[in-house]
């Protein structure tokens, strides 16, 4: 059984079909890339998968259960983590508090009025920060971190609910080439170790072709190619609409 199974996913905005019937499956531990020109519908697709947008049609099954149209927080409870194109972290908190807050939510403790939260889930939080190599910077404020480090923190937050699926929207956007390779290496390592499926969008073809097991190409809301990096790179239609010379 697939980890994620998407059938006939559709969404329109003001009469324009942003996503026009997308089908695909994702297996545990697999890194699947979703690429395509701007406006192809990648972000729309992503936002429907984690529940930020309600699809007009089609179905999404996660771990055998339908999650179509459920709000983000419910999708998250089922085991879907997410990182954003522009990092979304809590800037007034320290790195450690960011992860602690995610853990508090995961353990259902956010409604408690005592004790001070700085004492809660310290070890778990440090373990996650260790994993992404941010443990030494645990006490720094997120607002003063370098962008690459912020991306790592976001990854640690996204792992707080022990997800089975990670959705990463342009995980390396805004990073220098070396940092990109490093972050994706980290992500794929975690994916293999923990059998987490990762779906990611990406504009940097070096990253895509180096890390993805399979690549899907979206153009004007439709998948025009699916296959291994080698197959996709050789596809004439993909070259015409996206890759160019």
């Amino acid at each position: 059984m697939s980890l994620l199974s998407v059938r006939g996913l559709r969404k329109s905005f003001g009469g324009i079909e942003a996503v026009a019937g997308v089908d695909f499956d994702l297996e545990p531990g697999e890194l699947l890339a979703l690429i395509g020109p701007n406006g192809a519908g990648k972000s729309t697709c992503f936002n429907m998968l984690n529940g930020q947008l309600r699809p007009d049609g089609g179905s999404i099954a996660f771990d055998g259960q339908p999650i179509t149209g459920l709000p983000p927080r419910v999708v998250w409870r089922r085991g879907v983590g997410r990182t954003f194109q522009v990092t979304a972290t809590f800037l007034s908190m320290t790195v450690l508090q960011n992860v602690q807050t995610a853990l508090l939510s995961f353990h259902g403790r956010l409604r408690s009025f005592r004790p001070w939260s700085s004492r809660l889930y310290l070890d778990e939080a440090f373990a996650l920060l260790e994993l992404v190599g941010m443990a030494e910077q645990g006490d720094r404020l997120c607002s003063v971190l370098a962008y690459g480090d912020l991306k790592r923190v976001e990854l640690a937050i996204a792992l707080a609910n022990a997800p089975k699926l990670l959705l990463m929207d342009e995980p390396t956007a805004g990073m220098a080439p070396a940092e990109r390779i490093e972050l994706m290496r980290l992500a794929s390592e975690i994916a293999h170790e923990r059998r987490i499926g990762i779906l990611f969008t990406e504009h940097d073809m070096d990253v895509v072709f180096a890390h993805a097991a399979r690549v899907m190409v979206l153009d004007r809301g439709r998948l025009i190619a699916v296959g291994t990096p080698r197959q996709v790179r050789g596809d004439a239609q993909v070259r015409a609409v996206y890759l160019g010379s």
């Binding site: 983000p72 927080r73 998250w76 954003f84 979304a88 809590f90 939260s117």
Partner: peptide, 17 residues
């Protein structure tokens, strides 16, 4: 903490449930 989380980043707050 949860309240500050909602203030700092609604997007992230949603995404951690």
């Amino acid at each position: 903490m949860g309240l500050r989380a909602c203030r700092d980043s609604p997007l992230r707050a949603d995404a951690i449930g």
